[in-house]
Computed example of a mutant assay.
Amino acid sequence: MLLYLVRHATAQDRALGVPDPSRHLVDKGIKQSQKLAEFCKKQQLKPQMLLTSPLVRAEQTALLLHQHADWPEPQKQAWLIIETLAEVQLKALTDLMAQGVESVCCVGHEPDISALLALLLNTDAGHFFIKKASITALELTPDQAVLLWSLPVALL
């Protein structure tokens, strides 16, 4: 299965006092998401499924990918919310593989994306820091994961 991991784009600052689950994308985040979507469309990257954390900033990032890259409608997944164990996320991905899903994009959060990458690649999460609106691609089989590439939005 081809797995794309996307970190949500830039959202409202926590210091503004907005409850964390309700933080919206700011203008910079909207532009980042659109740039990411343009890259994906140009590269003909189109996952079979688009899954997102139910937190607003991740949902908005996924919706912009849907709208601007012609990706599938985003589906909220509780296992993509912040502080979900990487083992729980891996189990969900393994279940999707078993169902025959060939490609999926998960829009989520740090440090969860780094923790999942570390588990998949059998290394320490400290080796990764995925920037906002970045995309990482992996090839997943039941036995292993191979990192194909990882690009920050600034390079797109």
Score class of each variant (00 low, 15 high):
H127N: 15
S53C: 11
F129M: 14
T123I: 03
T123M: 11
V107Y: 12
E38W: 05
L65A: 02
C105E: 05
A118V: 02
A37K: 00
Q67R: 05
S114T: 00
D70S: 14
A78K: 13
A98S: 11
E87Q: 09
V107I: 09
A118I: 00
V104K: 11
A115V: 06
V107P: 10
Q48L: 13
T94Q: 13
T61Q: 01
V107L: 12
L121H: 01
L85W: 07
E102S: 14
I130P: 09
L64E: 03
M97S: 15
H127P: 02
M97A: 06
E73Q: 15
P111W: 09
K76E: 12
E59A: 02
L90F: 05
A125M: 14
H68G: 05
G100Y: 15
D70T: 10
K131W: 04
L80V: 05
P72K: 14
L80W: 03
T61S: 05
E102F: 03
H109Q: 15
Q34A: 00
S103D: 02
M49W: 02
W79Y: 10
V56K: 08
W79S: 10
E83S: 07
T123R: 12
H109G: 06
L90R: 06
V104C: 09
P72F: 06
E110P: 15
Q67F: 12
A37S: 00
H127I: 04
L63A: 13
G108C: 10
L51I: 07
D112W: 05
A125D: 08
G108Y: 12
P111N: 11
P54G: 04
A92T: 02
C106D: 03
I113Y: 04
H109P: 01
L80D: 13
G108P: 02
L80K: 06
K46G: 09
Q89K: 07
G108I: 07
L45I: 10
W79M: 06
E38F: 07
E110D: 08
N122I: 05
L63T: 13
T52K: 14
P54E: 05
E59K: 09
A69F: 04
T52D: 07
V107M: 15
M97E: 07
I130E: 04
Q43H: 15
T52C: 03
A37T: 01
N122R: 07
I82V: 10
T61M: 05
Q60H: 07
S53K: 11
A37W: 00
L55D: 03
K46Q: 09
W71F: 11
L45K: 03
V88Q: 13
F128Q: 02
R57A: 01
V104W: 11
Q44N: 06
Q75H: 08
C40V: 03
E110N: 12
D124N: 12
K76A: 08
L64I: 04
E83T: 13
K131G: 14
K76S: 08
H66K: 10
L90T: 01
